[in-house]
């Protein structure tokens, strides 16, 4: 069962993280920043949710992590998306589209 079933917000977090990672390999702080920046600060990612989510997705094989040095010479854990992650992303995107479409229909016709 996909994680989105567990709670919509967290499921959405997976979707957002995977989407961001599908463009570029990033470390946790950068992922949070990127989501916030793209959404014009409308979406703020809680660190308290981000790291468990990242590690869970790593465990599920959707992302993999790698220690790298950043510009300041600090060791950071950089995440990249895997093949399984890309598949999951496609599925989650489709589900998201279904959901928004369904919500849209309800709003329009209810």
């Amino acid at each position: 069962m996909p994680k989105s079933q567990r709670d919509v917000l967290q499921g959405t977090l997976d979707l957002l993280v995977l989407k961001v990672l599908s463009r570029e390999d990033l470390h946790g702080y950068a992922i949070a920043n990127r989501i916030q920046a793209i959404s014009d600060s409308a979406l703020r990612v809680e660190e308290g949710s981000l790291y468990p989510a990242l590690h869970r997705m790593e465990e599920d094989g959707w992302v993999k992590a790698d220690w790298q040095k950043n510009d300041a010479g600090r060791r950071v854990r950089v995440y990249s998306i895997t093949k399984a992650g890309l598949k999951q992303l496609a599925e989650e995107e489709r589900r998201w589209a279904d959901l928004t479409a369904a919500v849209g229909r309800v709003l329009r016709y209810a």
Binding site: H27, G28, Y29, E47, Y51, H55, W67, A72, R74, R75, V76, R77
Partner: peptide, 16 residues
Amino acid sequence: AEIEEELAAHIEALEA
């Protein structure tokens, strides 16, 4: 130890 380090890196980035 790795988790510790990863989270610490994040906090340091925020600090910076």
